[in-house]
């Protein structure tokens, strides 16, 4: 059995790191649609990839949250990225691989990945 006490070892390691806060009012917002349609189309691995990459790369001032159905079920999984520079960009038919590219190019690089957007 894995016990919760094993978390204490992780805590020791974390002491040396600056915690990255993910508040709702953060500068960049990544929203994954997680309604029935989104989940059925594969939103869970997409959310997982986005959440892991934001943590892994230590991207600050960025929140990863979920929303309900926005009425574009045939384009799911949908990810909405809102940044101060480009406003809201809607990415459609996402996969974990595309999500990784969006993190690299849009969130880190500041360039919208046009071919994955709803207008792309």
């Amino acid at each position: 059995m894995v016990t919760i006490a094993e978390l204490d070892a992780i805590k020791e390691k974390l002491k040396h790191q600056v915690a990255l806060r993910k508040e709702a009012h953060a500068g960049t917002q990544i929203v994954v649609c997680m309604a029935t349609c989104g989940i059925a189309a594969g939103a869970r691995p997409v959310l997982r990839a986005l959440s892991d990459m934001v943590q892994e790369k230590g991207i600050e001032d960025t929140s990863v949250t979920q929303c309900g159905c926005i009425g574009l079920c045939d384009l799911e999984p949908i990810v909405e990225v809102t940044t101060a520079k480009d406003g809201k960009v809607t990415y459609v038919k996402m996969t974990p691989e595309k999500a990784a590219e969006v993190i690299e190019k849009h969130i880190i690089g500041g360039e919208v990945v046009k071919e994955y957007t709803i207008n792309g």
């Binding site: 915690a19 990255l20 993910k22 892991d52 943590q55």
Partner: peptide, 20 residues
């Protein structure tokens, strides 16, 4: 209670939860 709320955003805590 073990690692604090802020640590939920750490990858190693997420991996622990899933593995647990």
């Amino acid at each position: 209670s073990r690692v604090g709320r802020d640590a939920l955003s750490d990858l190693s805590v997420g991996e622990f939860i899933e593995g647990f």
